[in-house]
Design a protein around this nucleic acid. Structure first.
Lengths: 249, 249
DNA sequence: CCCTCTGTGCCACTGAGTGGAACGGACGTG
DNA sequence: CACGTCCGTTCCACTCAGTGGCACAGAGGG
């Protein structure tokens, strides 16, 4: 019980989640399994460098320093910076959720999301994880992922997790091929309430697919075919910008 | 030469900036002063936890894990999540830059920025630092900051750094009082080319001012008076949302 | 070809990190 | 009011993880 202080520090940081945005010391010890004195010391040091902040009541919260550093992640905010204006356009043309995600190992990570005020019934949070096999952006990323990632996804596929159109691993395999061929994906989530439909397309830089862009809307009043061209066009615009402008700002 | 591994790790992370988004090991050692073997080991560990990623050419870049954790910062993405829709509205009504910033010690940190595509001539980057005394959001935050912060700003004020309207520390003091009274700020940057004008307003939660919202536009075609009401209204809307909805999502 | 600068592996030393123990305060309960 | 419990905090002896000097290999480049 003691492999790497850095590992521990990040385990402690990782113990925060959307249900635990502010944790007392006791919470940290509980969720990390560290000794009280250790957790306190590490948390204090993290506070010192700004990775954590401490509230008046003693609880810890994630600090701004992390935002500052994270904003330099090329695959995160770097990508976001060039994609944003195009996402804006897409958002206002469609009036629906617009998502931008990148793949991280066997999951996707939501880099940006644009939404209207109204009681946004969508499960995904910026910075949160997204499954590859049951979402539009996920499928696009998966279809363009290295072979081993796809194999793991196919091997670990549990029927029913990816809606009605994809029931078996074979369905999934066919869908991925289809997505590669057409260079876009359409996914439906026929949940009892909150049915969703998504149109998604890949974003590329010089080296290939780096992200996926999508429009998500409630199924009834949403014909994905109508938005596929818009999503693809926006994705291509972002891709072009990534190749020319070097993505900075 | 060795105070705190965590401190070192964050010094290493902090050695990345907008001009150095991808650094080879040698760059890390140079900019942190650490021994090569140490820098390599620390960087490797950071890579292991996802705080860094390694490119094919061996260079290090900031990783997605940090984005994931940072997205839980209440003062960062937490705030951002509730502010976004209102910023959207403001952005489309005005068609100009919309900024959201929070104060961090004696500086401001840009939490979100909405901009149009066109060669956006604005110095500030999401996640970047903003001076308190020479910008709209900065002045709003400063005017509502604790006494000691204001004193340091007044004491350290160098004439000329805050445009034409604020030439002396006394001017600044008066401006701050004015901003508190009116609950908004208007700032002009009369730079030779790229003149800018800003209208900014404070965002509050239960405990007081937590952020500042602004519209920034090129001076010629921008009469700030016209946008002050819109900015204030949006800021108040965000404030109300912060108090009722508990800021999550 | 030699010199330099890179990334990497090795390893003895030591001091930074560890976690158990003990203290005081804040609750809440009997 | 006294008791037990849980919290945050401090202290400290032990030891193991981190350190950094050194050596090696490969890539340029002059």
């Amino acid at each position: 019980m003691g492999d790497g202080l850095i590992e521990r520090a990040f385990a402690l940081l990782g113990s925060f989640d959307s249900e635990h945005r502010a944790q007392p010391l006791a919470g940290l010890t509980r969720r990390t399994g560290m000794a009280r004195s250790t957790a306190l010391r590490v948390a204090r040091q993290l506070t010192e460098v700004g990775a954590l902040e401490r509230l008046d009541d003693g609880r810890f919260v994630v600090g701004l320093r992390l935002l500052e550093i994270a904003s330099l992640a090329p695959r995160g905010h770097g990508l976001r910076a060039v994609a944003m204006p195009f996402m804006e356009d897409l958002f206002h043309v469609t009036g629906h959720h617009v998502l931008l995600a990148v793949r991280n190992d066997d999951e996707a990570l939501l880099v940006e999301r644009l939404s209207t005020h109204d009681a946004v019934p969508i499960r995904f949070r910026v910075g949160g994880r997204i499954p590859l096999v049951s979402t539009g952006v996920g499928l696009v990323l998966l279809a363009n992922a290295p072979a081993d990632v796809q194999e793991r996804a196919l091997a670990g596929f549990v029927p029913g997790e990816a809606g009605d159109a994809i029931r078996t691993a074979d369905d999934l395999r066919r869908s991925l091929a289809e997505i590669r061929r057409g260079d876009y994906a359409v996914a439906r989530r026929p949940s009892p309430e909150n049915p969703r439909t998504t149109a998604a397309a890949p974003v590329r830089d010089e080296d290939g697919v780096v992200a996926a862009l999508s429009v998500v809307a409630p199924s009834p009043q949403f014909d994905p075919a109508a938005y596929v061209p818009a999503v693809r066009a926006a994705a291509r615009a972002i891709s072009r910008q990534l190749r020319t402008g070097q993505g900075g700002r």
